[in-house]
Each structure stands twice: as structure tokens, then as C-alpha cells.
């Protein structure tokens, strides 16, 4: 059963690219061990917002962030926080699956450990556990030494999810994780997101509102860089509180 405690607490968050302010004063408590979907029109800032949650936004030239993001009460933008180590706690899965092309499936799963401190003796166990967690084990258990890129797109995306959960993060951020894969692979990844939501805090950006309705416990609607509405998914899609939300999810224009 999911908890209702807050994992990530976002307060008065602004984000900009140079002079262009993309996010305006976002306040949001993201619940632990639940799936939170971010929806909104193109350019509304949802991907930028996601990238602020593990300090990837600041990697872009001239990008700035103001406000606070707390992980279990600790400010992730504090000077003492190492962004690289932070990303072990707050992992990310991208739109297009991007396994390391020359690495084997097993090495791809272990990539996070290799890059942040080394692989322990029980590497085989870790690989099996992560691939099982990503619902990929049965399909790849006999070809772990084959390149990650030998897999289909959907399998590669689940491999990337396995890679992300190997380092046992607290939070998984997913940016349009199904937009580059076919409907069957999408169903598998959605199923996986649902299962992972039992143990991980997941924040997923999606253009597909039906997908948000299917996989998330809570949904946030952003428009022009502002958080318009954040509520239980069933409430937001059956009876949204704001007219802007109603117009967007029903596909209306003024």
C-alpha cells in the first residue's frame, strides 16, 4: 500500500534559460512511493521541471534555478551536495533509450556502479535483481554478454530502467519514457512503472494524457511554466478544479 509522506518538496521554484524564465514559482509536495505524472502542452516547462529535480537543468549553458527542492527534508541545491552523488538518489530515464552502445547488457546494468565507485563482488546477483525488477530478465538472461544495442527499442528502455534502479535510487524521474517505443513495449514499460511505484517514488513526464491516467496516482498540470493543478489522478481526469485543466485535458481551445 502506498504511503502519503512527502519524498520531494518543491518550494517557490523558478527556472530560466538566460533571460527566458521557464518555470514560475512552483510549489509541490511529491509523495513517496507513488507515481506522479506531469502533463501540459509543449513548452510548458514540464521537462525543465523534471530536470530541476535532480539538478540536471544546471548542466545547460546559462540555466539558472531559484527556490528550493528538498529530498527527505534536505535541500538538494545546498552547496555541500555533490550533484553526481545526488543523481544516484534521484535517477533518470530519458525519452530515447540510450544504453552504452559498446557495452554488454550486463555492463549496462552495472554502469551506475562502475561510474560512481566500483562494482561489488556480487555483480551477477545485482544484474539479475535489476533485470528482474525491470521485467527484462527472462528475455535477456541467456545473452547478458551481448551489446545493449542488440535489444529492441522497448527492451532497451527497460534496460535503461534496470540501469537506473541498480544504484537503488529513492526517486526515478522519467522523461517521456514511452514516446520512442511501440504500443506493446509501451504496455510493458507502463506495467513496469506501475510495479516500480510500489517501491520507488516516480515522477514521469508524458505527452500522452491517457498514459498519465493509466499509470499515475497523482497528476500535475503545468501551463506556461506555472503549476495550474495538482491532484489525485482520478479526480483530475474526472472533475478537474480549474477551467484551464478541463480545457486542456478535453482538448479545447478558446
Amino acid at each position: 500500500m502506498s504511503t502519503t509522506s512527502t519524498k520531494l518538496s518543491v518550494s517557490d521554484l523558478d527556472a530560466s534559460y538566460g533571460d527566458h524564465q521557464v518555470l514560475h514559482s512552483i510549489d509541490m509536495d511529491i509523495p513517496a512511493k507513488e507515481v506522479t505524472a506531469l502533463i501540459g502542452p509543449s513548452g510548458c516547462g514540464k521537462s525543465t521541471y523534471l530536470r530541476c529535480l535532480n539538478r540536471m537543468h544546471e548542466l545547460t549553458t546559462a540555466a539558472t534555478v531559484n527556490g528550493t527542492v528538498q529530498l527527505d527534508g534536505a535541500d538538494i541545491y545546498h552547496d555541500d551536495i555533490d550533484p553526481v552523488l545526488l543523481r544516484r538518489h534521484i535517477g533518470m530515464v530519458f525519452q530515447k533509450p540510450a544504453p552504452f552502445p559498446t557495452w554488454s547488457i550486463a555492463d549496462n546494468v552495472l554502469a551506475g556502479l562502475k561510474l560512481t565507485g566500483g562494482v561489488p563482488d556480487n555483480a551477477d546477483e545485482i544484474v539479475e535483481k535489476a533485470l528482474k525488477g525491470a521485467a527484462l530478465w527472462e528475455e535477456v538472461k541467456d545473452k547478458l554478454d551481448k551489446p545493449g544495442t542488440s535489444l529492441s527499442g522497448g527492451q532497451q528502455q527497460r534496460l535503461c530502467i534496470a540501469r537506473a534502479i541498480t544504484v537503488e535510487p529513492d526517486v526515478l524521474l522519467m522523461d517521456e519514457p514511452c514516446s520512442a517505443i511501440d504500443p506493446v513495449a509501451t504496455a510493458r514499460v507502463e506495467n513496469l512503472i506501475h510495479e516500480l511505484g510500489e517501491n520507488y517514488t516516480i515522477v514521469v513526464v508524458t505527452h500522452n494524457m491517457q498514459q498519465a491516467a493509466r499509470i499515475s496516482d497523482k497528476t500535475a498540470f503545468l501551463m506556461m511554466g506555472e503549476l495550474v493543478e495538482f491532484d489525485e489522478t482520478s479526480k483530475l481526469f474526472s472533475n478537474p478544479s480549474k477551467q484551464e485543466t478541463e480545457d486542456y485535458i478535453t482538448g479545447k481551445f478558446g
Binding site: Q210, A213, F237, S238, N239, P240, E246, I249, T250
Partner: peptide
């Protein structure tokens, strides 16, 4: 259409 919100109701 997979209707939602006011349309679904």
C-alpha cells in the same frame, strides 16, 4: 476519444 472530465461525465 477516450473522453475525460466534463465530456466523460
Amino acid at each position: 476519444r477516450q473522453s475525460v472530465a466534463g465530456d466523460l461525465r
